Amino acid sequence: MPEMLIDYYKAIENSSAKMLEAARLKDWDEVVRCEGACAVLIEQLRYQSQQQELEPAQRKEKARIMQRILRNDAQIRVLAEPWLTQFEHLFEGQLQVMH
Rank of each mutant, 00 (worst) to 15 (best):
residue 47 Y to E: 13
residue 72 N to C: 07
residue 18 K to R: 11
residue 32 V to Y: 00
residue 65 I to T: 12
residue 76 I to K: 01
residue 40 V to A: 06
residue 74 A to M: 04
residue 79 L to E: 00
residue 15 S to C: 13
residue 87 F to K: 15
residue 87 F to Y: 14
residue 66 M to F: 10
residue 67 Q to W: 11
residue 73 D to W: 13
residue 74 A to D: 04
residue 53 E to N: 03
residue 46 R to E: 11
residue 43 E to M: 04
residue 88 E to P: 02
residue 40 V to N: 10
residue 63 A to W: 11
residue 89 H to I: 08
residue 53 E to H: 12
residue 86 Q to P: 09
residue 57 A to Y: 07
residue 16 S to W: 00
residue 19 M to G: 03
residue 71 R to P: 02
residue 47 Y to T: 08
residue 27 D to Y: 00
residue 8 Y to V: 05
residue 3 E to F: 08
residue 61 E to H: 09
residue 66 M to E: 10
residue 53 E to V: 04
residue 11 A to W: 11
residue 4 M to H: 14
residue 33 R to M: 08
residue 27 D to S: 09
residue 36 G to E: 14
residue 92 E to I: 06
residue 26 K to T: 06
residue 97 V to M: 10
residue 16 S to H: 09
residue 59 R to D: 08
residue 92 E to R: 07
residue 29 D to S: 03
residue 90 L to T: 10
residue 80 A to Q: 01
residue 71 R to H: 13
residue 12 I to W: 11
residue 86 Q to R: 11
residue 92 E to V: 09
residue 10 K to T: 09
residue 81 E to S: 12
residue 67 Q to M: 14
residue 34 C to Y: 02
residue 39 A to I: 10
residue 4 M to A: 12
residue 67 Q to A: 14
residue 96 Q to M: 13
residue 51 Q to G: 02
residue 12 I to P: 00
residue 17 A to G: 01
residue 3 E to V: 11
residue 6 I to F: 15
residue 11 A to T: 15
residue 2 P to G: 09
residue 3 E to N: 15
residue 68 R to A: 07
residue 73 D to V: 00
residue 19 M to V: 03
residue 58 Q to H: 10
residue 34 C to P: 03
residue 94 Q to I: 06
residue 43 E to G: 14
residue 21 E to F: 00
residue 40 V to L: 08
residue 17 A to Q: 13
residue 42 I to P: 05
residue 70 L to T: 07
residue 20 L to C: 02
residue 36 G to I: 04
residue 95 L to D: 10
residue 76 I to Q: 01
residue 82 P to K: 03
residue 61 E to A: 13
residue 92 E to M: 10
residue 27 D to V: 01
residue 58 Q to I: 01
residue 46 R to K: 10
residue 54 L to R: 11
residue 37 A to W: 02
residue 52 Q to C: 05
residue 9 Y to L: 04
residue 70 L to F: 15
residue 58 Q to V: 03
residue 74 A to C: 02
residue 88 E to G: 06
residue 10 K to F: 11
residue 67 Q to D: 15
residue 43 E to D: 12
residue 42 I to T: 11
residue 83 W to E: 03
residue 23 A to F: 00
residue 12 I to A: 04
residue 66 M to C: 05
residue 14 N to A: 12
residue 65 I to M: 05
residue 75 Q to F: 12
residue 75 Q to S: 13
residue 10 K to S: 09
residue 67 Q to I: 03
residue 33 R to H: 04
residue 24 R to H: 07
residue 77 R to M: 14
residue 89 H to D: 15
residue 21 E to L: 00
residue 60 K to S: 13
residue 79 L to P: 02
residue 60 K to F: 06
residue 33 R to Q: 08
residue 26 K to H: 13
residue 50 Q to T: 13
residue 68 R to G: 04
residue 96 Q to L: 14
residue 92 E to S: 14
residue 72 N to Q: 10
residue 99 H to Y: 03
